[in-house]
């Protein structure tokens, strides 16, 4: 008889929690000037990474991050059994082309900036389900390739709104295995697409906050946990505006994640770095997780982390047609054994 691993409406439990055995994180120059410089594996000197376009640089960023995560365990690239990756560019070219070079069996994902959580939770399912022994979950974003796809030409003089966010140039990769040393992925909550009618592409945090709150609420309801169970709950890239909105919504929903609640978009940069409301992009939550957060788990500063990456699932075409911005968030619980 099949036993289902789902609990409640949206949450899945892993019977044999997959182990995060190694991880890596490469970031761009601006992220390297932020408060977490010492926690990243490598800081790029410029945005081109010895390539001739930003798109190619982004592909290389992802590729090198995946390689580095495997190398940390003395693994060859070919020893990875499956790559789960996605990014922000049309047709997820960064991931597709990185997978071409890496030559690892590959499933491409699109969850916008929620991809780190999406790839991590699918990877954990693949391993707990007994399909694979070693899966790499990865994502990346590049400030200038995203800027030209979603906003204005880079050299155009544009005054940004205070609620606008800065797409991070960063990639994160996590190696999941059946056995090993490291924090474990214990359960995950798959989010619904929530659209509360925000149509301002300069205020993505506001578009995603309701999705983040919905997923966190579902997670606690499904698991029957107290809100102080986790040492830290981080959302992906709500930024300052979205985080304030999330806090208001938590109160409305009767949830109390504070004071253990924060947001990667708020954490990634210093207030003085000219990023307005904070960071965004797939690389924002990926670099915070694969940089400082997992390091803190290894140090024992954190033992239970709920990582809630958030994504805005819009496209310029849909925006021009007057569509509002749907948001999504997936929660992944990472705990020390």
């Amino acid at each position: 008889m099949t036993t289902f691993k789902k609990t409640g409406m949206q949450t899945i439990n892993f019977d044999n929690p997959p182990v995060i055995t190694s991880w890596a994180c490469l970031v761009g120059p601006k992220e390297g000037e932020g408060p977490w410089a010492k926690d990243f594996d490598r800081i790029l000197a410029d945005y081109l990474f010895d390539e001739d376009s930003w798109e190619k640089a982004e592909n290389k960023l992802l590729r090198e991050t995946v390689k580095l995560a495997l190398t940390k365990q003395d693994l060859q690239t070919m020893e990875a059994e499956l790559l789960l990756a996605g990014d922000l560019l049309n047709q997820t070219i960064s991931s597709n082309y990185a997978a071409r070079e890496l030559n690892i069996p590959y499933l491409g994902l699109y969850g916008a900036c929620s991809t780190m959580a999406e790839s991590l939770l699918i990877g954990a399912m693949m391993i707990d389900g007994g399909f694979f022994n070693r899966v790499v979950s990865a994502t990346c974003s590049h400030h200038y390739s995203a800027e030209r796809q979603f906003r204005f030409p880079v050299e155009q003089g544009v005054q940004l709104a205070a609620s606008a966010q800065w797409t991070a140039t960063a990639a994160g990769a996590i190696v999941l295995q059946v056995k090993g040393q490291g924090p474990r992925v214990t359960c995950a909550t798959i989010g619904r697409v929530i659209d509360m009618g925000v149509d301002d592409t300069n205020n993505m945090g506001a578009a995603m906050a309701p999705a983040a709150v919905s997923t966190i609420k579902a997670h606690f309801a499904d698991k029957g946990l107290n809100s102080d169970y986790y040492d830290l709950i981080v959302t992906g890239d709500l930024g300052a505006v979205g985080m304030n909105l999330a806090k208001e919504l938590f109160v409305q929903e009767g949830l109390v994640p504070a004071p253990n609640y924060s947001d990667c978009g708020v954490l990634l940069y210093d207030g003085l770095q000219g990023v307005n409301a904070g960071g965004s992009g797939c690389g924002c939550s990926a670099s915070m997780l694969c940089g400082p957060l997992l390091k803190k788990m290894i140090n024992g500063e954190l033992n239970r982390l709920l990582f809630v990456a958030t994504g805005a699932l819009m496209s310029p075409t849909a925006s021009f047609q007057g569509e509002t911005i749907p948001g999504i968030a997936h929660a992944v619980a990472i705990e020390n054994a």
């Binding site: 609620s163 509360m196 205020n203 506001a206 304030n244 208001e248």
Partner: peptide, 13 residues
């Protein structure tokens, strides 16, 4: 209701 909340929280130029 959410729109009103966003307008309240969002920083003005």
């Amino acid at each position: 209701e959410y729109k009103d909340l966003v307008n309240r929280v969002k920083p003005k130029p």
